[in-house]
Simulated assay, not measured.
Amino acid sequence: MTAPGPAGPRVLAITTNDGVVQARQLVRALAQECRLSLVEQTKLVTAASELARNTLIYGGGGTMTADLVQERGRRGIRLVFADQGPGIPDLDLALTDGWTSGTGMGLGLSGSKRLVDDFLLDTVPGEGTTVTVTKWAR
């Protein structure tokens, strides 16, 4: 079972580019609070930035829920990006390195997956997408 952080989860709306910036700032602050190394902080902030941008652009906006978590004696940060957008019709293709819908660099999902320790993607075409990522302190 995962215990929530002392302050509890923080929910941030991602409905504009400002929301993407705020998501990065919150994740950076939590990464520092969790005492991730500078390299691990950068990886997590990069993944969060990509996922927040995907939430805005492809999901039409949504939320990021961020929390400090503890599990089996280790500390980490869990981020959940959720939208009510069109979903991802071809998940295998979307997770292919270098694949882009035409507007991005092709880093989004596959790159984010490589930058975190745990990655879970749930999508239903026509209903939305939820991506949950966790980065553990070393």
Results as ranks from 00 to 15, higher is better:
Ser112Trp: 03
Arg24Met: 05
Asp118Arg: 06
Arg78Cys: 05
Gly5Gln: 00
Ile14Thr: 08
Gly19Cys: 03
Val80Gln: 15
Glu40Gln: 13
Pro86Phe: 08
Thr15Met: 05
Arg114His: 14
Leu26Ile: 09
Gln22Pro: 02
Arg53Glu: 14
Leu36Asn: 07
Asn54Gln: 10
Leu115Phe: 10
Ala52Arg: 09
Ala31Asp: 12
Val131Gln: 03
Trp136Tyr: 14
Gly102Ala: 14
Thr96Ile: 09
Gly102Met: 10
Gly8Val: 02
Pro89Ile: 04
Pro6Val: 01
Ala13Leu: 08
Arg28Val: 11
Leu91Asp: 01
Leu44Gly: 00
Met64Gln: 06
Ala48Thr: 13
Asn54Pro: 09
Ala3Val: 14
Glu50Pro: 03
Val45Met: 02
Met64Trp: 08
Arg78Val: 05
Leu12Ile: 09
Leu107Val: 14
Trp99Arg: 11
Gly98Phe: 11
Glu50Leu: 09
Pro9Val: 01
Thr63Ala: 07
Ala7Gln: 12
Leu79Glu: 01
Lys43Trp: 08
Arg74Ser: 13
Thr55Tyr: 03
Leu121Val: 15
Gln41Lys: 06
Gly108Asn: 10
Gly85Cys: 05
Val39Asn: 12
Arg78Gly: 01
Thr65Cys: 06
Pro89Tyr: 03
Gly61Phe: 02
Arg24Asp: 05
Gly19Glu: 00
Ala94Arg: 12
Ser101Ala: 14
Gly76Glu: 01
Ala3Cys: 06
Leu120Lys: 09
Met1Gln: 04
Val11Leu: 04
Ser112His: 06
Thr46Lys: 10
Gly60Phe: 07
Asn17His: 10
Met105Glu: 12
Ile88Arg: 00
Gly126Tyr: 02
Val11Glu: 03
Asp122Leu: 12
Thr15Tyr: 04
Ser37Val: 06
Thr123Gly: 02
Glu127Cys: 07
Lys113Val: 05
Val80Lys: 09
Ala48Lys: 01
Ala29Lys: 13
Thr46His: 15
